[in-house]
């Protein structure tokens, strides 16, 4: 299947600031594609170039076969946008905004259904300025979906949502994907990227430094598994010789074994073999956050 979005050597500067240095990627139809990266990495700039909201300095972009530079108007009708920063008139009511944004295309969804889905039915007649941060965010997501887009861009969709609302949002986004919509998601939440995205690109300083399925990234870049338990047996140096073990550290009673792959099975067997049966043996699998920290050299959000 041909990709629905292709980006080749995208570059965008603001005066001396290089926001996007050189970014290339493809998104397949029906995929949830994530862009992950520290603040100022160039994620918003990238997706806004794709949505014809900013003019790139150079590079080739195709979204649904259209060039955002030259076919902006056609393109905007086919895509949905939830922008990282935007607003509505203070005194507009929730239903008025949805009704207005639905009027741009005959393909639009029934906005009453969206109100229900995104938990805004009770706020139907409330003015925009009276909504809480999370309610505004949900309204913006609903507005991004109301024109029944083929590709939807969500820039920090769940920022400001409570944990329950985030779960609901994930389920709804998956359902939208299952109906054939392609989703491009910018996020700072590692769990969101890990659970929701089919593929993730890690962006840093205007470049993509890794791109793969979340599990693929984890295996490739943060393969280290940690096995942790406590024991009062003093001599555990023999653990170093157990298959798949790379390193053993001891902090008081706590032992931390670092290794790869099925290390937990070997360690457990060896412990039992030595007559050590710890009650608190646990394994910590690496997460996308470990990948992120390793690749970008700093933690998410700074």
């Amino acid at each position: 299947m041909p990709p629905i979005i292709t980006v080749q050597n995208l570059r965008k500067t603001y005066g001396p600031t290089v926001a996007v240095d050189d970014i290339s990627f493809e998104v397949a139809e029906g995929e949830i594609f994530g862009l992950l990266g520290p603040n100022g990495a160039g994620k918003t700039t990238t997706v806004e170039c794709l949505q014809a909201l900013r003019q790139p300095d150079s590079g080739e972009i195709r979204v649904l076969g259209l060039d955002p530079r030259r076919q902006a108007r056609e393109l905007r009708k086919l895509i949905g946008s939830q922008l990282q920063e935007s607003a509505l008139p203070d005194r507009i009511r929730v239903w008025e905004a949805l009704d207005l944004f639905a009027s741009v295309t005959p393909r639009a969804l029934d906005w009453r259904m969206l109100l229900e889905q995104w938990g805004l039915a009770a706020k139907r007649r409330s003015s925009f300025s009276s909504l809480s941060g999370g309610q505004r965010q949900r309204l913006f997501i609903a507005l991004a979906l109301v024109n029944n887009p083929k590709v939807v861009f969500l820039d920090e969709m769940t920022t400001g949502l409570d944990p329950a609302a985030r779960r609901v949002a994930w389920d709804l986004i998956r359902a939208i994907r299952d109906n054939g919509t392609t989703v491009v998601l910018v996020t700072h939440f590692m769990d969101e990227a890990e659970k929701l995205c089919d593929r993730v690109a890690v962006v840093d300083k205007g470049k993509i430094i890794a791109a793969d399925a979340p599990q693929g990234l984890i295996v490739q870049h943060a393969g280290e598994v940690r096995v942790i338990f406590t024991t009062d047996v003093a001599d555990i140096a023999w653990l170093e010789a157990v298959p798949r073990v790379d390193r053993v550290e001891r902090k008081g009673l706590m032992v931390e074994v670092r290794g790869s792959g099925p290390v937990i099975a070997y360690v457990a067997a060896a412990l039992v073999g030595h007559g050590i049966i710890p009650g608190d043996l646990r394994v910590e699998q690496p997460t996308l956050e470990d990948v992120f920290l390793k690749l970008t050299g700093h933690s998410a959000g700074d």
Partner: peptide, 10 residues
């Protein structure tokens, strides 16, 4: 940012 929002929604 209302203008941006309106423009993005064609």
């Amino acid at each position: 940012g209302v203008l941006r929002r309106l423009r993005a929604s064609s």
